[in-house]
Amino acid sequence: MGVRRGLAAVVMAAAVGAPGAAQEADLALSEPAAGRFAALALKCVGREYPNKLDHVMNAAEEVKGPQALHPAFYGCFDWHSSVHGHWMLVRLLKEHPAMPRAAEARAALDAHLTPERIAGEVAYLDQPGRRSFERTYGWAWLLKLSAELRTWDDPQARRWSAALQPLADRLAAQFMAFLPKQTYPIRTGVHPNTAFSLHLALDQARAAGDATLEALIGERARTYFARDRRGPLAWEPGGEDFLSPCLEEAALMAEVLPRARFARWLDGFLPGLPKGLTPAVVTDRTDPKLVHLDGLNLSRARALYEIAEALGPKDPRRGALVAAGDRHARASLPHLASGSYEGEHWLATFAVQMLAARQALGH
């Protein structure tokens, strides 16, 4: 059974299954499904083309191909997708070390996460005109990868983590330098979204014991968002969104506010959540922007689970939030392996991140 048919078989039961415990189990990441998710990443982490470079050229000699510019993260169409494809492989191996394709996943990580290749990534950032390269979405995914490796008790992971450390340190420092200058948050539904990047970077700050970065992220989140009221959720989604500006903001605030204060803040920001929230409709999965809406369904589901978890098991909103998350998850899970590279190079990462949040409920 191929990757496309195999993934569809794993998740179609989630789309049509009966309610109850069996249906909930369909949203757990099984070992066979982990292998099929890994297969999607393995199709692209070493695939150089097609590629969408974000590249400031300072001279003619800098007209180079993706692998020459980015020796570690050249695949998966663009730099940030390559980074989070590596994160997904690490996450899957941590959860299911004996999954199908495990040996191939380890070999890919071993080939790319070397001191020499990471040094090449750092050298790229050292050139003029690169200060805003992948700011802050790609930065945050790199820190998320670093956090995942730091929290994995595995000999290879420790080696990969050490190799990645210079780049993680560099981007953590760039967060520290940039965030105090960012007077206003970016509230878009695509890559520059500030809340999403802060949420990912917070994982690294906590995993690394970086109290200074953690404190800055908390301060920025409260400064940007603590006074927000009546978020315009009814205006969402935009036609190419893969993030919900309102839900990403709420998921971040769930991390930086105490439970009781967060519950009050949520009442003011998204009263009635999740009333009226329905999965986005994707009309063409070969279109690189329209397929973003599959990512939106997956990221909405993850954010709804995170909000529900932060509110706690006794909050009356919890059941409706989880049910809404499940509806969004099931709307797009069957379409991860669509046969179109426009979605296949990145959507599985959002699915794995979402399933991790689903698994964390009640733990």
Results as ranks from 00 to 15, higher is better:
residue 310 A to Y: 04
residue 145 L to Q: 02
residue 81 S to K: 07
residue 3 V to S: 07
residue 38 A to D: 00
residue 66 P to L: 01
residue 357 A to M: 06
residue 230 R to L: 15
residue 300 R to Q: 11
residue 151 T to Y: 05
residue 277 L to I: 15
residue 303 A to F: 11
residue 148 E to T: 12
residue 304 L to N: 01
residue 249 E to W: 06
residue 231 G to R: 08
residue 96 H to T: 07
residue 13 A to T: 10
residue 356 A to I: 04
residue 250 A to K: 00
residue 301 A to S: 11
residue 197 S to H: 01
residue 100 P to L: 10
residue 156 Q to G: 15
residue 32 P to G: 03
residue 310 A to R: 10
residue 145 L to D: 00
residue 21 A to D: 14
residue 107 A to L: 11
residue 68 A to L: 11
residue 68 A to S: 11
residue 353 Q to L: 14
residue 352 V to M: 06
residue 214 E to R: 13
residue 318 R to N: 05
residue 74 Y to L: 08
residue 301 A to H: 00
residue 305 Y to Q: 09
residue 183 T to M: 13
residue 180 P to W: 07
residue 356 A to D: 10
residue 82 S to F: 00
residue 327 R to G: 07
residue 103 A to N: 10
residue 93 L to S: 02
residue 5 R to P: 09
residue 7 L to A: 06
residue 81 S to Y: 04
residue 126 D to C: 13
residue 20 G to D: 06
residue 279 P to Q: 05
residue 341 Y to G: 08
residue 250 A to L: 06
residue 179 L to W: 10
residue 216 L to N: 04
residue 185 P to G: 03
residue 111 A to W: 08
residue 64 K to H: 03
residue 248 E to V: 02
residue 271 P to S: 08
residue 65 G to H: 12
residue 288 P to S: 10
residue 276 G to A: 12
residue 126 D to W: 02
residue 6 G to Q: 07
residue 149 L to W: 00
residue 57 M to T: 12
residue 209 G to T: 03
residue 189 G to V: 02
residue 324 A to V: 06
residue 124 Y to W: 12
residue 197 S to N: 04
residue 133 F to E: 01
residue 88 M to H: 08
residue 183 T to W: 11
residue 287 D to H: 14
residue 28 A to I: 05
residue 224 Y to F: 15
residue 293 L to D: 05
residue 131 R to K: 14
residue 19 P to K: 04
residue 162 A to C: 09
residue 136 T to W: 13
residue 91 R to C: 10
residue 100 P to H: 04
residue 143 L to I: 14
residue 210 D to F: 07
residue 152 W to C: 11
residue 15 A to Y: 01
residue 110 D to N: 13
residue 88 M to G: 04
residue 166 P to S: 08
residue 145 L to T: 06
residue 274 P to H: 01
residue 11 V to K: 09
residue 200 L to K: 10
residue 354 M to D: 04
residue 103 A to T: 12
residue 301 A to D: 02
residue 94 K to G: 10
residue 287 D to T: 11
residue 217 I to Y: 01
residue 174 Q to W: 07
residue 47 R to W: 03
residue 332 S to H: 01
residue 297 N to K: 02
residue 25 A to Q: 14
residue 86 H to Y: 14
residue 338 S to F: 08
residue 65 G to S: 10
residue 212 T to G: 09
residue 232 P to D: 02
residue 53 L to M: 14
residue 276 G to N: 08
residue 117 R to T: 03
residue 270 L to V: 03
residue 289 K to Y: 15
residue 176 M to N: 05
residue 54 D to A: 13
residue 178 F to W: 15
residue 247 L to A: 01
residue 324 A to C: 15
residue 161 S to F: 03
residue 139 W to Y: 09
residue 317 R to V: 08
residue 79 W to L: 07
residue 67 Q to K: 15
residue 357 A to D: 08
residue 48 E to S: 12
residue 336 L to A: 08
residue 218 G to W: 03
residue 202 L to C: 06
residue 181 K to N: 10
residue 173 A to E: 15
residue 226 A to M: 11
residue 105 A to P: 06
residue 291 V to N: 09
residue 339 G to P: 04
residue 218 G to N: 13
residue 361 L to K: 00
residue 273 L to D: 00
residue 122 V to D: 02
residue 222 R to F: 09
residue 60 A to Q: 12
residue 144 K to C: 12
residue 111 A to Q: 13
residue 336 L to C: 05
residue 238 G to A: 15
residue 241 D to M: 03
residue 307 I to H: 00
residue 344 E to G: 01
residue 227 R to Y: 14
residue 308 A to V: 07
residue 356 A to R: 14
residue 47 R to E: 13
residue 117 R to W: 00
residue 361 L to H: 03
residue 61 E to V: 12
residue 130 R to H: 07
residue 158 R to I: 10
